[in-house]
Nucleic acid binder design. Structure first.
Lengths: 353, 353
DNA sequence: AGTGATACTTGACACGTTTCAATCAGTGGA
DNA sequence: TCCACTGATTGAAACGTGTCAAGTATCACT
């Protein structure tokens, strides 16, 4: 009934701040709660004088609207969940920035979680976000199948897959054509005059790795019609710098020795470059190197790294647009927005063998 | 019957999901809502048979607890806000990962926002987070003063400053000793036998830049007692690669020419390296280079970049711990957790002049 | 059978907000 | 003076959950 200490000035020592409600504001302004609510939500229908009085009361009391109550009453949560595989990977943070830029403009706050490839963690985050009644979820699924996301679909939580395709009636998705990317990189090396290259791949359980491999093979098949081309394949357990560095030995001992190596991502390529530098193998004269992802740091190396650029920021923007459409448009249809990768040629591959 | 409806692809129209409440579960299980609540929150006090029946009903209905209602009733939001200057900066994402690792274990979900140095954006995010009743906020303030955060303090929202010190009675904070870091780097160069170095700084409006400069001056003062040491200071408007590259000309034209340059961060250093490479100046023989931040990519350059490492991940962990203490411990006292930077010596500075 | 104790279950209320039908005050017209 | 009308304000209901005093059923023991 009578609240303790309402409006008492908070001292540094005693943290006796009691949340101020719309009722407190009403009391101070000498109006009803309904009027306060109207001032906040439909200022036009309330008389000028009252409005001023209420706003003043809001100011003096330091009122901050309680979103939970608002939402419970039927309002929207203005929250979107984002679930990625790894926040420390620049590709994902760029995507996040893209999504953020679109969604913040619409008044949304983003919840971010990083699964580190763990299906269990993913499930737990998605669960938590559903409990928070997020209006939608952007997600890079950790598992190969989409079984774990079935609940989202049946419960009608708007969901957009990031860098992962889904069947048309399941989810919206934004993707990059990895087959095309692999093809671009391989073609470039062949065009530069290389005939024997190595495709240095990551684990083929990862879809991106499979697709890029397929692109490389496609390029080999297409170009071999004129003159023989060859791409040996080499695969390691993870897409890290360390794995890249460790495999250099194997590449150099191949007979006949390849003249170029195409890496499944930039981290592998950075490792390769490091390994080569320590063995005094010149790049690109002795061995040309191409990466994938176009991390900003690749351009600062000497030689600068040729790479396949993925429009991460734009991916995020597109995902946000799809989500907003699904949230607002009753006639929304799921669809896939597919981006084209782009080859960025730099010094590490610009000399003919 | 159970086939998908091929004729009409699904639109939003067919999303006939109505939110399942605790009341629906109660009806299905044939008990009261109170019992369902008990099963969910204090399973021990409800009879085995009833509990099983209720859990089964939860399963079949697909019930997901509404956090807003829970919280409105007096529960906690299990949400923490994180506000950083730039999500695409690896330093901040590492810090985020650190905080995430601690907070997720405690069942918290994180809201992330990136201010891009804008005080207005910061204010708007903090406001939104307060409306969401986050239990606490980790923030890298955009403004020089902490005026904009005064509201957080008076309202008693637990807040921890990231990489920014506050007066003892204001907020908790986690920081790295930038004075010490600047001193470490400068001392290292002097110890290697350099006597005339350049301190290549960013804008001194940034606290970190001021502190690092102070460290450099301290090293000069201390070591000059034996034999003369000198550090010219040079400052540019932003800590970017481009600014680093552009300033190379000025450094090379100094008379007498310095033998080493210490940069206020790694991005500047990367730019300097690039500029030097294009002018055939050898590193470290002609000019030694030291950076700050120890971005992972600096170690991959040749020559690899000497740098001052900041324990970003640990910073995040510490911030989370401070926040949790402030949230849970009634006798919490604000304090500063200060980390020591660490010099990582690599090839770019390992030769005497 | 009566008594008390034990073990569950119930149902109303509170949380802070929005909404909406109802009320009130004021104005102008007849 | 009465009526109709407009514009402004009110007050109570509802959202989904957790709590807790009060209730019921069951059982053991005399």
């Amino acid at each position: 009934m009578t609240r303790k200490n309402r409006g008492a000035p908070p001292t540094n020592e005693s943290r006796t701040w009691v949340p101020v409600t719309i009722r407190d504001v009403a009391k101070v302004a000498g109006v009803s709660t309904g009027t306060v609510s109207n001032v906040l939500n439909r200022p036009d229908i309330v008389a000028e004088a009252t409005r001023r009085r209420v706003l003043e009361a809001v100011e003096t009391t330091g009122f901050i609207r309680n979103t939970q109550a608002y939402q419970l009453r039927g309002g929207r949560s203005h929250t979107v969940g984002v679930v990625v595989l790894d926040v420390s990977n620049p590709f994902f943070t760029e995507m996040f920035r893209g999504a953020e830029s679109s969604l913040q403009a619409e008044g949304y706050v983003l919840m971010l979680a990083s699964t580190d490839d763990s299906v269990e963690r993913e499930a737990s985050f998605v669960r938590a976000m559903e409990e928070h009644r997020v209006e939608g979820i952007l997600i890079t699924p950790a598992a190969a199948d989409l079984e774990g996301l079935a609940g989202l679909r049946t419960r009608g939580v708007p969901t957009v897959l990031l860098d992962r395709k889904a069947a048309a009636d399941e989810f919206c998705s934004v993707t990059v054509d990895d087959v095309r990317g692999g093809e671009l990189a391989a073609r470039h090396l062949f065009d530069m005059g290389h005939t024997r290259i190595v495709f240095f791949n990551g684990p083929t359980t990862i879809r991106q790795c499979r697709d890029r491999r397929q692109g490389v093979r496609k390029a080999v098949r297409a170009l071999s019609k004129r003159s023989p081309r060859e791409a040996s394949e080499l695969s390691v357990g993870a897409l890290t710098v360390r794995h890249g560095e460790e495999v250099v030995e194997r590449i150099l001992s191949m007979v006949p020795r390849p003249t170029a190596v195409m890496c499944a991502n930039d981290l592998l390529a950075l490792g390769v470059l490091r390994g080569l530098a320590s063995r005094d193998v010149r790049v690109p004269e002795d061995l040309a190197v191409v990466g994938y992802d176009d991390l900003i740091f690749g351009s600062m190396l000497s030689p600068a790294l040729t790479s396949v650029r993925q429009p991460a920021f734009e991916l995020g923007v597109a995902a946000a647009e799809l989500l907003l459409d699904e949230v607002r448009n009753p006639e929304h249809r799921h669809r896939e927005v597919r981006f084209e990768p782009e080859l960025v040629v730099r010094a590490s591959s610009s000399t003919a063998p």
